[in-house]
Design a protein around this nucleic acid. Structure first.
Lengths: 348, 348
DNA sequence: TTGTAAGCGTTATCAG
DNA sequence: CTGATAACGCTTACAA
């Protein structure tokens, strides 16, 4: 099957010819070069010609000479997570407004190194790396690339992060204020800085109140997703004794945990309070509605993209180092005052 | 701030020099041209040289000469919808395996026409369009582009779709078998072929059973999302009388609808059965678990990408026209036999 | 089997 | 202010 009427490309030569100017002159006006001084009449003729024949600049050719692809890489752990999808959306919007394309790389599909190679081959102008352990990568893998990190420790590169420590602390304080003293934690075992800080913020706030979480109630799961939250809660309920409050490192885990508790006949928040983190849209739509901490996902992506573009376009970075975005507790229906009598020990 | 050590690009010239061959010869082996006959020793020398200095082909330059960008566009209504995210994931994987990048375009961020212009400028080799009304686009917008449609009426272009009519029918038959006779429908007002067919499949199966849905129970909402499902259910419950079963055109709507019913004190599936469509992961995690129809989202994306690549690479299309993927009813916890006595009329 | 030369569609550097 | 001319890094006839 022949290609459908192989589109006769209209190039800048066509524009120049129609406008009666040389090709480079056409280029000067069409790429609206900042310090190009073209007679107003000529400029108009060129623009008219371009419009008339529907000229569209060839970004590939432009990239070759300018040595800039006007494309950014964006590496994420899994764009199917609602939280990350929002980060992506924020970054995409900023990039698109500046005329940049975004090459989305999902680490759940292929390893980081392989993505980086592809991005390099495509001459991307910079890369955003979101919580996929860039810090653990060999130096060479990122050498010569402009990098902005999202929710990762930003030592070698600038970064944007949410105040994950505060997120953990806010949950702890909320639960403490409700009278809870018996806690559990469910979080992913992945090497993610933000998750680690959420944990740390939670535990240190408890410690400040003179409390600790026994290791049997400190559950690590393989991924921060619903199924893992459900499994963790199952384990938690099977263990002797029972906490009165659980902090899940993200909302998906929390949704799974709540689900499992309800299935097992443990009422939420009556018998057990559960809090998540992220405030994904869905948190408002599960029953009961999820208490969580709002993390500004879109803003995270948008700010990171802006930071990267600033570098790419050679504008100076205003502040050095990392930006930390504030977070906010959103108390909803899965947390309540601790039951007046300790919950019944589970009978086998 | 100066660019970080402006990476000294290693080009094919460097490889050629190091291997002691001409640049085009290096190209011949590095682009492993099918009918290039290069001496085995030479070939090896070139490959070694390339490996030694870490040569990475410049895709931009390659694109310019080959007149192929090795990039595909993928236009979707909203990649933050879990169903669509799966479609994207399927397409991405296939594209990546074939060495193609995917430029993701989200229609909820910018209008279709604007995306197409960008994709054109970037010389994409083809475009996948998922349920965003390509059929209503002026002919010119897609002229000269290789197009594969996903879940759209495929007349002018090849396409891949799920058997949306069957999806609607399966739900109707399921609910009829449970004894239901009083139905309602909640669906988006958007111009989406798949949603329209789901509707049609549902209604015609009911009609075949001698039943109809009164127009007051046929609700159109502005978007196929949770909030809209909730609002629609609110309207439905406020109206006089009450159906015993509701079909929501997708799972997000269904989740919102169930949520609102429960909030209003209507038990699901006791008083009211609700079914969705898509079988997103979440459907298993809401309470009660959602009865739905499984649509093979990833497969949809993957098949579409394969179809497009086949065209792009000039291989013949095996079957003409459209592929229709089968769907499957997944009965879960939100549907049950119709209550023995008609539900009480609502009192104000 | 290999090298030479031309060209892909732009932008950039210069003379005029 | 405008127009030659030379890149950018690669592929592809065509010669040698």
């Amino acid at each position: 099957m022949a290609p459908p009427a192989a589109a006769p490309r209209v190039t800048i030569y066509d524009v120049a010819a129609r406008a009666g100017v040389s090709q480079p002159t056409a280029s000067l006006v069409l790429s609206n070069h900042p310090r190009a001084r073209v007679a107003l009449a000529t400029r108009q003729r060129v623009l008219d010609a371009a419009a008339a024949i529907g000229y569209l600049p060839n970004v590939v050719a432009r990239s070759l000479t300018r040595r800039r692809s006007f494309a950014l890489g964006l590496i994420v752990p899994d764009f199917r997570s609602p939280f990350i999808a929002d980060v992506v959306a924020g970054a995409e919007r900023v990039a698109a407004e500046a005329g940049y394309a975004v090459l989305l790389c999902d680490q759940s599909a292929r390893p980081l190194a392989s993505h980086l190679e592809l991005l390099r081959a495509r001459q991307i102008d910079g890369v955003l790396i979101d919580a996929v352990g860039a810090a653990t990568l060999p130096e060479a893998a990122l050498a010569g690339l402009r990098v902005v990190l999202i929710d990762e420790p930003a030592e070698r590169w600038p970064g944007v992060a949410s105040d994950a420590t505060a997120a953990g602390r806010l949950v702890a304080e909320h639960l403490l204020a409700l009278g809870h003293r018996e806690f559990a934690f469910i979080g992913p075992a992945v090497d993610s800085h933000a998750y680690r800080l959420r944990e740390r913020g939670f535990i240190s706030a408890l410690r400040a109140a003179g409390l600790t979480v026994p290791s049997a109630r400190w559950l690590r799961v393989s991924a921060a997703a619903v199924a893992e939250g459900r499994d963790a809660m199952r384990r938690l309920l099977a263990a002797p004794g029972r906490p009165t409050a659980v902090f899940c490192a993200n909302d998906l885990l929390a949704i799974g945990a709540v689900k499992q508790a309800l299935t097992a006949g443990v009422t939420v928040p009556g018998d057990l309070s559960v809090a998540g983190c992220d405030d994904i849209e869905l948190a408002r739509y599960v029953t009961p509605e999820l208490t969580t901490v709002r993390i500004p996902a879109r803003e995270l992506g948008a700010r990171a993209a802006r930071l990267l573009l600033r570098q790419v376009e050679g504008r100076p970075l205003r502040r050095e180092g990392a930006v930390l975005l504030p977070v906010q507790l959103v108390p909803r229906g899965t947390t309540a005052p601790v039951p007046p009598t300790p919950p019944l020990a589970q009978v086998a």
